[in-house]
Amino acid sequence: MLTVEADAARVETRLQAGEIECPDCGGVLAPWGWARHRVLRDANGVVRVRPRRARCSGCGGSHVLLPVFVLVRRVDLVDVIGAALLAKAAGSGVRAIAARLGRPVETVRGWLRRFEQQAEHVRVYFTVLLVDTAPDPVPPTASASRFTDAVAAVVGAWRAAASRWPDVGKVSPWQMASAASRGRLLSPIWP
């Protein structure tokens, strides 16, 4: 699994030109078919995606090129899930978040539980990213909650990256988090 930009045409152009490298060995990825069609939910309806599949000329491994707005094994786009995480960090309850997003309570509860389980890994990873990226880093101050600290670290790392590379500011903090975690922000196996 490799997270790539949202523009499928640009990804295809880069793939054809040999400009995407294998995350495992650094070899050149080449087109190798397509993954299955996926119907995903955004804030306003559905998005249909058919991710590109690529094969490495070096190690022979195959990778699904997952758009930056998608998380592995999630039907909802990362910005919808990110909105739930931000709301929880701000003190909202799961029922209120679910009602605001128009999602089942159990779905939202699952996102929040999974993020809570990985909160310390997320906090550490994104705090290190913030410190390594920012020209004059100021890590987020600790709060009473690991969950809130992890959310603050993601947003802080995004701000640091956007201040250094303006193109990063074109994506949301959650899309950057998806890219940095290789789509595994809510995965039980943290990258």
Rank of each mutant, 00 (worst) to 15 (best):
T3Q: 12
S57V: 01
V49L: 12
G18E: 05
D149W: 07
I81W: 09
P166L: 00
E120L: 14
A89T: 06
A17T: 01
L112W: 02
V94N: 09
A119S: 10
L77I: 04
R113H: 11
K88M: 08
R103T: 03
A43N: 00
R36S: 12
D167L: 00
A6P: 00
V11P: 14
H37K: 12
F69T: 03
R50L: 01
E5L: 14
A153E: 12
W32F: 14
D42A: 07
V122W: 05
G156K: 00
P137I: 03
L101H: 10
A162R: 11
S187F: 09
P135S: 14
L15Q: 04
T148K: 07
A161S: 12
V108D: 14
V105M: 06
G33E: 03
Q175D: 13
A90L: 06
L2S: 13
V131S: 08
V124N: 02
V122G: 01
R14Q: 13
T148Y: 02
W190M: 05
E106Q: 11
V46T: 14
D7Q: 11
W190C: 00
V80S: 14
S145C: 13
R184E: 15
C59W: 02
E12A: 15
L85W: 11
M176H: 10
G102A: 02
A162K: 10
L85N: 00
A161Q: 13
P23A: 04
P137S: 08
G110M: 02
P188T: 05
A98W: 15
G102P: 05
P139H: 02
S178L: 01
D167I: 00
D136M: 09
R55A: 00
A177D: 09
S163W: 11
V72E: 14
A142S: 15
R53A: 05
F126R: 06
P191F: 04
L186T: 09
E120F: 07
D136Q: 13
L77P: 09
A179S: 12
L101Q: 01
H63E: 01
P23H: 04
W174N: 05
P140V: 03
R50V: 08
V171C: 01
I20A: 02
P191S: 04
D136F: 11
V151M: 04
L129C: 04
D7H: 12
P51E: 08
F147A: 03
V68I: 15
Q118I: 02
C59V: 02
R74F: 07
Q117T: 06
G58V: 02
G91P: 13
V168A: 00
I20N: 00
R100L: 06
D167Q: 03
V122I: 12
D149E: 13
W32N: 10
L65Q: 09
V128N: 06
L77W: 05
L71R: 07
A8C: 02
E12R: 15
R73C: 03
G82M: 10
V131H: 05
R114Y: 01
R100N: 07
W158Y: 10
V78C: 06
A144Y: 13
L112R: 01
V70G: 04
S143T: 15
R146W: 08
P135N: 13
M1I: 04
S145F: 10
P137D: 12
V68E: 15
R38W: 15
D167V: 00
L71E: 12
A177C: 10
V94Y: 14
